[in-house]
């Protein structure tokens, strides 16, 4: 293996891994704080992709700007959704009940959103070309839009880390993740934290969707693979630990490249799921899990 291949592998690990991390962070935050498995997470991501597509195609608005727009839109839409769908459920304070019904409700939401997107924009997939040119970094080459996505993803991961570990809100959220009952006894407003978790999670999904939309084809059903990915990374890295999501994301990014380069991508899914099972057997809370 010559050195440039080595650098490609390292670079790709981060390029893929950071996007994976960002995607799984939103999912992880919501699940660890509220115990809701948001099956519709992938559809929020898809909505982000569609928004980026339409704003760029119709008004030439660059995707990085769309990120802000979609974060605001999804935040605004998420709060009423939270009040309607999740607040009553979360008030039962029964974890098993919340987990089961969370899946059922979000599954319904997922199907509804897929249907809505198909109705509005048809099932025919779409794509757009944004900074598709290739740039050189040392001995390796990378498409500029992927480089942008990687840098933005890194920036957002750091931002989220700062939010969770350096702000009062972050401390509150991590308290709820660790022990919601104790957090409530200590006087934290659990309901508003739950609402914020949902809003934040949806915004992260939408922003991830914008980043991904620069490189993949966009369709109403694109979200399914991403929600599974988010779930797998959360499980591997550990529920409730954003560092775990980073670790999980990077591990998966590395595996994607390494497996493809060595035994061939055909075995990718098998290896990843075997790894997931192995980790969960040895450490049921994931590598760095704590929630």
């Amino acid at each position: 293996m010559d050195t440039s291949i080595f650098f490609y592998i390292i670079f790709s690990t981060f390029q893929l891994g950071l996007i994976y991390t960002l995607i799984s962070l939103g999912f992880n935050l919501l699940y660890s704080s509220t115990r809701i498995i948001n099956v519709a997470y992938g559809e929020f991501l898809a909505l982000g992709s569609y928004t980026a597509f339409w704003l760029y195609t119709l008004y030439s608005i660059p995707p990085p700007a769309t990120m802000l727009i979609i974060a605001i839109i999804l935040a605004a839409v998420s709060y009423p959704l939270y009040l309607l769908l999740f607040k009553p459920l979360l008030e039962t304070r029964n974890v098993e009940y919340i987990e089961v019904w969370g899946v059922i409700i979000t599954f319904g939401l997922s199907i509804t959103l897929q249907g809505l997107m198909t109705l509005l924009w048809s099932a025919q997939s779409k794509a757009y070309s944004y900074f598709d040119n290739v740039v050189e970094i040392g001995t390796i080459t990378v498409t500029f839009n992927r480089l942008i996505a990687m840098i933005i993803a890194a920036f957002l991961v750091v931002l989220l880390y700062l939010l969770l570990f350096r702000t009062d809100f972050g401390v509150s959220m991590r308290s709820v993740i660790q022990d919601p009952n104790l957090a409530s006894l200590l006087g934290l407003n659990i309901n508003s934290i739950f609402a914020m978790a949902f809003i934040l999670s949806s915004a992260i999904a939408g922003v991830s969707g914008v980043l991904i939309s620069m490189t993949v084809e966009i369709s109403p059903f694109m979200g399914v693979t991403y929600v599974i990915l988010a779930f797998v990374i959360t499980a591997i890295g550990g529920v409730g630990n954003p560092i775990g999501s980073l670790a999980g994301g990077l591990i998966l990014g590395l595996l994607d490249v390494l497996i493809g380069y060595t035994v061939g991508p055909g075995l990718n899914l098998f290896i990843v799921y075997s790894l997931l099972v192995a980790i969960l057997v040895v450490r049921p809370k994931g590598l760095l899990g704590r929630g």
Partner: peptide, 13 residues
């Protein structure tokens, strides 16, 4: 490579 794969960097290397 599997249907729905998200990345082919390894194989293309």
């Amino acid at each position: 490579y599997p249907f729905g794969t998200k990345d082919l960097k390894g194989l293309l290397l």
